[in-house]
């Protein structure tokens, strides 16, 4: 128990508690409670097509007994992590340079306009954007039509591959990452860049030795955010990735897709919950890693 003398009087202020209650209640109702229910549900069983609140680790035994054989949930998980990490890397690089363009090349009075234009896709439906990508990237799509006009006869195979999945995801992530990276870059001390240049650094050296190190926290944060969101996404893998998108790992579905398929086809919500809990655990690990990376970046900046 904490000694009450240590707590500043203001911490017991009824006003403070009143204002603290809504966010605490919000997280308890919309985050903690559903998550706890999901975890508990994974330990229940199904009898005669009905959920029975009887503790069992059978769902986890079933899942891990066929992790790399038969249903191969493990390979789907590896595919998901691989796609999430690579997507986030590409998304961060793409958005970083876009944000740099806005911060360093656009006059200050137009920067907000460019920022709004960059995040404009966020205001349209994600599913519609994915269908649009299908039309653009398909074998008989816009891209291959244009390439055909340029004399490239063999169509590029992008849809129903994990490259397609990544494109859909990057488009989804871009508005958020651009905001994160824009704020990061706009906070980079221009005096330091100018000092580096005056001391003889080339533009590239100033970029690598000044701008990138000072962006490390934002880059880390954007990367972590990108990995977690990509890992949990199911739509891009289904609509542009074709459900079983090919990557160099093989033609494995994403883990999120396996969870969806399990929910849609099996009258065993506890097993689906157990599959989802495995995913949540991986996400927690990712969050911890991202937090540590961000913390390290923050310490370096300090």
């Amino acid at each position: 128990m904490t000694d009450s003398s240590v707590i500043p009087p203001s911490n017991r202020s009824p006003l403070k508690l009143t204002f603290l209650a809504p966010p605490v209640g919000y997280y308890a109702i919309f985050f903690i409670a559903p998550l706890a229910f999901l975890v508990v549900l994974g330990f229940w069983i199904v009898r005669d097509y009905q959920i029975v609140a009887e503790f069992s680790v059978g769902n986890y035994i079933d899942i891990f007994s066929q992790f790399f054989s038969r249903s191969r949930f493990g390979w789907a998980l590896v595919q998901s992590i691989y796609v999430a990490v690579t997507t986030s890397v590409f998304a961060v690089i793409f958005c970083y340079f876009l944000a740099m363009g806005i911060v360093f090349c656009v006059p200050e009075r137009y920067q907000r306009l460019f920022l709004v234009l960059a995040i404009l896709p966020f205001w349209s439906s994600y599913i519609l954007r994915l269908f649009a990508w299908q039309l653009i990237l398909a074998q008989k799509g816009v891209l291959n039509y244009v390439l055909g006009g340029l004399g490239l006869d063999d169509p590029l195979i992008i849809t129903n591959t994990q490259i397609g999945t990544r494109i859909g995801l990057i488009h989804y992530l871009a508005p958020i990452l651009i905001i994160i990276l824009y704020i990061t870059l706009i906070n980079v001390n221009r005096n330091l860049i100018e000092a580096a240049r005056e001391l003889g650094a080339t533009r590239l050296q100033a970029f690598w030795r000044v701008i990138v190190p000072l962006s490390r926290l934002g880059l880390t944060f954007a990367f972590g955010f990108g990995v977690i969101v990509s890992f949990g996404d199911v739509l891009s893998g289904m609509l542009v990735g074709g459900g079983i998108g090919q990557s160099w790992l093989g033609s494995y579905p994403l883990y999120s897709n396996m969870i969806m398929a399990d929910y849609n086809s099996y009258t065993n919500l506890p097993r689906t919950a157990a599959l989802a809990t495995v995913m949540v655990l991986i996400m927690v690990v990712m969050l911890v890693v991202a937090y540590r990376m961000a913390d390290r970046a923050r310490q370096r900046l300090a």
């Binding site: 911060v103 200050e108 907000r112 958020i176 905001i179 994160i180 704020i183 990061t184 706009i186 906070n187 001390n189 221009r190 005096n191 330091l192 000072l214 926290l217 934002g218 944060f221 954007a222 955010f225 923050r298 900046l301 300090a302």
Partner: peptide, 20 residues
């Protein structure tokens, strides 16, 4: 919004606020 020319190395909390 602060000017982009001000030194703000100690204030990189913007992204976190935005994310939340």
């Amino acid at each position: 919004m602060k000017s982009s020319h001000e030194p703000k190395n100690s204030d990189l909390t913007g992204p976190r606020v935005n994310r939340r």
